[in-house]
Structures are given as C-alpha cells and as structure tokens.
Design a protein around this nucleic acid. Structure first.
Lengths: 187, 187
DNA sequence: TTCATCATGTAACGGGTTACATGATTAT
DNA sequence: ATAATCATGTAACCCGTTACATGATGAA
C-alpha cells in the first residue's frame, strides 16, 4: 500500500523523501502511517522498478536532497491500482478490544480507568481532526473567496477521509462511554 | 498481541492449536485475526519460554493432537500484560481510505461503484454481528432461564466488543452513504 | 469412495518496527 | 553555542502472509 501512497503523492508534484514523509504525517498517517526507513527504502525500490526517477540535483546542495519524479510507468501503475476496486473489507486490528475481551479477570475499577484514558485520547484526536477540517475549509475559502461550492476533486476526497476520522472518533467515544457507564452502574 | 490472545484463551481451559484457531475465528478475529501457521509457531515459542506446557496425550491418538496448558508463569505473564494499561491509540490501517484519498483522478462513477460494494460488505458484516449477539444472549437466557441480569463478567466484555463491531459497521455504512450521496448530487 | 473437516507443521517472502548512524542548516 | 529541524540512509528483528506439505477421521 505504501508504494501507492508514494506514487499518488508524486503524481501531484516531484518531491524528496523527506517531503513525502512530512505530507504523509499530516494526511494519510491517520489511516496509513509509515516510518522514514520504509519510505526511503521503498523509493529506491520503485526507482529500481522504473516507476520513479530521481535527481540529486545541484552539486552545491550539500544536504543530499534527492528529488523523485513519477515516470510514465509509475503513472500507469497508479492508474492500474485504481482500476482494481477493493472487494473485501479492510481488517481491524485494535489492541484495546483484545484487552477488553480478556478483562473478566481484572478489577473493574482498573478497566474503567483504562477506558477513561482511551476516551481522553480519542477526544483529543477528534479535536485534532476538527481543527484540520477547519484549516482545509479556510484554505479553500481563502483561495476562492466565496461560499463552499467549488472544492477541487482532490479536496473533496480529502475531506471525505477527514470526515471518516471524525465520525470514527465520535463512534469510539460514544461506545467507550456506554461501556464505562455499564461497568459503573452494575455491581 | 497474539501471544496474549493464546494465553487468555488457555486461561479458560487447556486446548489444542486447532481449537484455539477455531475460537479465534469466531471471536477475536473481528479485531485481531491470526493464521494457523502463526498460532502453531507461537504455541511452540511460548512453550519454549515456559509459559505453556503441552501433552501429546494418548499413544492411541493418531491425529497428533497436542493439548496446551497455561503454566503459573504463563498466568503471571497474562496478569502482567493486563496490569500495564494502554495509553496510546491503536493505529488504523484502511485500504479503502487510501484509495479514496487519491480518487481525484478517477471517474466519479467508478468511485461510487466501489463505495457501493463496500457498503454491501459492511451491511453483511453488521448482520453477522447482530446474529452473533443474538446467539450470545440466547445462550445466556437458556442457561439462566430469566431476564438479562446476570451475565458472567466474561460475557459482559465479549458483548462490549461485539457492540463495538456493530457500531463500527453502522458508522461505516452511514459514512459511505454520505460520501456516495455527495458524489451523486454534485456535478 | 470421495469430500469436508480435523490436525499440525515448515519455508519463503515481504512489510513493519526499532535502533543505529551521519551530517547540514536555521533559529535562538 | 546549542538545539531543533532538515535530510538520508542501513541493519536487525519480528510479525504477517502465502504456499507447501502431510495425514487421519467422519459423513454422504
């Protein structure tokens, strides 16, 4: 999956690995994160496969910046991936649910404490998403000066993933509250 | 994480790898799945670490069934894991969100088709969860013959993870519907 | 007898995670 | 000066995934 994220971002503009990492950390990281060690390794691999080219431009650039560009083959690979729609459900892996599943042995108070910490973390994440959505909208208003009609097609999809994040966090918080309430009330 | 699932299940009763796999496929698989190749390998490892013992009982058992038991050290490891509460958010990895994020280049109709397929899959999953919840409740009613008051502490937590699954699917379906609606309406 | 299910393993490969490693530039 | 940030890599380890491999039992 990481390879398609890199191809997808480089389709917007040529970039260095560092820039790719920064953009990922502000966007896809919420549904697909990656370490810089993975990114640099994958960029070299994609270059080897002919999907990218790189230039370590300017002899006077002592930072060894390496700028990657999408090749025609890379663009084709991106389109090919998009042409094969997902027909399965993405799997969930969630440590907290595993822990909760086996919590029959634990002190109820300890379980409640852990759930309360999770609730706080999810509330913070929700606030972060809401701030991000606000920025995206502000940027659009600023560049267009009008009411919210003409999102570019990219921004429309970015907003959709952000709304997912918000609704996911709201669902998670509501669920945590219901579990906490049930554990608190019953003897 | 798999190791704690195995320790947690063997805390209920001694079992074979095959039985563990079957139980996982009906319970934790919704938030943590595992292949049989992983399970058998991990069981051997945990035995090597002294957390489990195994007996390939009965010389007349030609199926080579190997029954695993939790040791005292294994029980202690389970409690130690439970004693260190989660203080981070479990990461999300979701292919569909990656695909949607980069869908600006695609035909809107293709995107809508893919989202509709996802909606169907999530609806099926939701129905599956609802059926499972019904079974859990029926089993409780049957064993107690009365109104829903005395879930064992285990069943209470199992139901909580099931409710998570239901609410997750409902949130996902509602979100898909909103994205589909937005894509259908706008030119 | 043949198929589904029971039952247990190994091997190869790929991807994720942590740690190691180095050095330049910019702001305080 | 010194810390934060920019910038790029390698290596070891662990885990997940797919495929290979074998054989017994029970039901149709």
């Amino acid at each position: 999956m990481l390879q398609y994220i890199l191809l997808g971002l480089l389709n917007y503009a040529p970039m260095t690995g560092y820039e790719l990492k920064s953009i990922i950390d502000e966007s896809t990281t919420h549904f697909w994160h990656a370490y810089h060690s993975q990114i640099y390794t994958m960029l070299r691999k994609l270059e080897g496969d002919g999907l990218l080219t790189s230039e370590s431009d300017d002899a006077d650039d002592k930072l060894n910046r390496r700028v990657y560009h999408l090749t025609d083959a890379g663009h084709a690979a991106l389109l090919a991936w998009q042409g094969q729609p997902l027909t399965e459900l993405p799997a969930i892996k969630d440590d907290l649910l595993v822990r909760l599943f086996f919590s029959g042995l634990r002190d109820r108070a300890d379980v409640i404490d852990e759930l309360r910490v999770q609730k706080l973390l999810h509330q913070r994440k929700l606030e972060y998403y809401e701030a991000l959505a606000g920025e995206l909208i502000a940027r659009r208003v600023h560049s267009k000066g009008g009411a919210g009609i003409d999102l570019t097609s990219e921004a429309r999809y970015w907003m959709a993933t952000l709304r997912f994040g918000e609704q996911y966090e709201r669902m998670y918080i509501a669920w945590l509250e219901s579990v906490i309430a049930e554990l608190e009330v019953t003897g």
